[in-house]
Structure formats: structure tokens, C-alpha cells
């Protein structure tokens, strides 16, 4: 398993955090996700055979939030 921290821009409240955690957390290969509103990032533990830092940040951008990539 791999762990990555991705930047997430555009969140303003707990409901934003929740929708990202729910949607990204339900993707195949995502084991765990923790989104921080204060730090504007998402820490994701994932199966590298099914997801990559790129695919995860694309999935976040697909939801309408900015994800400048892994940090």
C-alpha cells in the first residue's frame, strides 16, 4: 500500500470535506482517506495497482476542487 498527501483547494466547510471523503473514499483501490480543511489537503492510503497520486488528484479535480498534485 502507498500513502500520498494531495493538495485540495476550494473547500470551505465540513460538507465539502465530507463529499470528498465519501466520493474519493469509495473509489476502487482507496483504502483510507482523511481530508483536512485547515491544511487544504487529503491524505490517501491506496493500492498502487489500482490508483496513483495522479489518478487521485484527477478524481478530486473531476469533483470541481483544485488539486495541484502531490506534496
Amino acid at each position: 500500500l502507498c500513502s500520498v498527501s494531495l493538495g485540495v483547494e476550494g473547500m470551505t466547510c465540513a460538507s465539502c470535506v465530507q463529499s470528498i471523503e465519501q466520493r474519493i473514499g469509495s473509489l476502487p483501490g482507496v483504502i483510507h482517506i482523511k481530508v483536512s480543511l485547515e491544511q487544504k489537503n487529503a491524505t490517501v492510503i491506496f493500492d498502487p495497482s489500482q490508483q496513483s497520486p495522479q489518478s487521485l488528484s484527477e478524481a478530486i479535480e473531476d469533483m470541481g476542487f483544485e488539486s495541484p498534485g502531490s506534496s
Binding site: T12, S15, C16, D62, E66
Partner: peptide, 11 residues
């Protein structure tokens, strides 16, 4: 919130 409407705007 504006986070949601911002996300809707971008998609």
C-alpha cells in the same frame, strides 16, 4: 456553501 457552488461552477 461557496465551496459547493464553486465546485459546481468548475465542473
Amino acid at each position: 456553501c461557496e465551496g459547493c457552488s464553486g465546485a459546481v461552477t468548475r465542473v
